[in-house]
Design a protein around this nucleic acid. Sequence first.
DNA 1: TCGATTTGACCTTT
DNA 2: AAAGGTCAAATCGA
Length: 257
Amino acid sequence: DHGLAEIEALLRREQELVTQLRALILPQLHNVDSGSAELAVQLFDDAIRCTTSVVSKLFTAGSGATIELIDDKSLVRKNSTGTTATAIDDKMDEQAKPSCIVGRKRRRNDGKRSRSLVTNVPHYDGHQWRKYGQKNINGRQHARSYYRCTYTERNCSATKTVQQQDQDGGSSIYSADAGEDQGAKYTVVYYGDHTCKASDNISNNIIDHLPNLVDIDLRRGDTERVTLEIPEFEMELDVPALLEVFNNSQLNWEIVC
DNA sequence: TCGATTTGACCTTT
DNA sequence: AAAGGTCAAATCGA
């Protein structure tokens, strides 16, 4: 109901503030002390995950009217009933598309969970990645890059994709031509878990010294966890509060499945 | 020279 | 068939 919506808006706001802080701090810290930066990555991400989990649990445990979660793939073009989707599509990131109307969950990569993050520093996530592919995606301005964990020989199956978000219509305010676009945002989707910690010297130390790091149990399989998507299309939500969150949204970290 | 990235071909899913 | 994901040979660069 209404109170819940407000709580959720606040949680999401907190989530975004933390993530913005993350984006602000990590590049700076990395230049000064990369060890501390690694630690900061873990702390930030655990904090963010913690909030995500709270949001998820709050809005699935509650009223039976939970919003169905669909996986990344089905977010694309699942906007049924011919509601001239294009205008909306272009405005929204794929992750953020309303799952409205959809109501049907379909699951690919059986049981593999993924988390998505929108950030302007897609590479500061505390792990080492090797790029193994790049593809142009339909209707996207930028190619999607595919990464897998460097320590694949330690049968670490973690992978991620990084995709720069489309710029709105006109030319970019920032240096559109050459160099890194400082204002660009990237959607990063993580798949699988890192089972390579033993061989990752830095992370290993961090974990050894920080037993209190939050370890969220992300359930899989039968009990599907749900995070809700864009507010405007959902009923019973505190739309103004959520809209404010969404409009200020720099970042958006959510458990996708 | 060796590890990482690029890039087109190939495979998988829808 | 088309789009997304992965492979692997060629290429890059430290």
